[in-house]
């Protein structure tokens, strides 16, 4: 069969909403795009544990500490679901981890910002997880089966993440003058980077359509971003705080909130490795990996020893 015919059959399946599974034929570019996207998503979950890990030992109460630990453990699990999905596309876990540790692979830029106060744990849960959820809810219907299944599992766990974040901010927003200021400050610092999480404007894209055509993505960056702004602009009223954007305003004609211009230069700078914490994050991952070396080795040796012993007994 000609490749063109194969591609036609493939596109036909996509159009009929039939999921693509690992053993099915797929265009090389589809495989690569999925592999890159899923592995970067996995790396984002894993690196995303770092800014929050920063506050485990300093959480203000045992309850908050337990919640934070549970949330971070979830993120580690999300990374694992996604690595498994990426592996079905023929790239080993070791190679993926190596690409992350060497700096070759990318992860979401948001995690290259520092978490400076306890209020950041609230802002991260509410804004960063909130933004991620919109993206992930859409991805539950993505065309690659293993990715979609991982997303369904992840989405089940995510809503607790956003709610605990909002809950933490709510307490601060009703607290002392200092606590209120802390709450507002965290929102100020995390708002714009959260908007950048959705990626460049649709109008600045060169190959926007392929991912939509293959139904890897079903909404554009700007659609998701608008959805996020509309959601947060309403929710913040409950906190009695403000978003750091003087241009934010309800537009009756559009039935959406208008918002100000995003600083894309900052975005690209962070992507290119010059964000506030890029080096620190990778160094932390490398350190953790190196220090775990002997554990992995010992487990491997132990499993081998047990196998050999079982063989001897059988003989």
């Amino acid at each position: 069969m000609l490749v063109q015919d194969m591609e036609q059959i493939f596109q036909d399946k996509i159009d009929r909403e039939i999921k693509i599974e690992p053993k099915d034929w797929m265009p090389e570019a589809y495989r690569k795009t999925n592999l890159r996207q899923i592995s970067q998503h996995a790396h984002s979950e894993v690196v995303g544990m770092l800014p929050e890990g920063n506050w485990i030992s300093r959480a203000p109460s045992l309850k908050r500490k337990a919640i934070l630990l549970a949330k971070i453990q979830d993120e580690g699990g999300h990374g694992l679901y996604l690595y498994s999905a990426a592996e079905t596309l023929g790239f080993s876990r070791d190679e993926m981890i190596n690409d992350l540790l060497s700096g070759k692979a990318k992860y979401s830029s948001i995690f290259n910002y520092p978490s400076l106060s306890w209020a950041d744990m609230g802002a991260v849960g509410w804004l960063v997880d909130g933004a991620a959820i919109l993206n992930q809810v859409m991805l539950c219907r993505t065309s690659y089966g293993p990715y979609a299944r991982a997303m369904v599992r992840i989405c089940k766990e995510e809503s607790f993440h956003q709610r605990q974040g909002f809950d933490a901010l709510l307490v601060l927003s009703r607290g002392s003058k200092e606590q209120k200021a802390m709450c507002q400050d965290a929102i100020n610092r995390w708002w714009w980077p959260s908007l950048m999480m959705f990626g460049p404007k649709d109008s600045e894209s060169t190959n926007s359509d392929q991912s939509m055509k293959w139904k890897i993505k079903r909404k554009t960056n700007d659609e998701l971003r608008q959805q996020f702004v509309d959601m947060i602009a309403e929710q913040i009223k409950t906190l009695g705080m403000v978003l750091p954007d003087p241009a934010l305003k309800w537009n009756e004609a559009r039935k959406h909130y208008d918002f100000g211009a995003i600083n894309w230069e900052e975005f690209w700078n962070v992507v290119k490795g010059n964000g506030p914490c890029n080096k620190q994050r990778l160094a932390a991952r490398n350190k953790a990996h190196d220090e775990g070396d002997w554990v992995r080795e010992a487990a491997k040796q132990y499993a081998e020893k047990k196998r050999n012993r079982a063989k001897e007994q059988a003989a």
Binding site: T33, Q37, Q40, S44, N135, V271, G273
Partner: peptide, 11 residues
């Protein structure tokens, strides 16, 4: 999109 950053931009 989120989670899909081109690797050429590694730095």
């Amino acid at each position: 999109y989120y989670g899909d950053i081109p690797e050429e931009n590694s730095g």
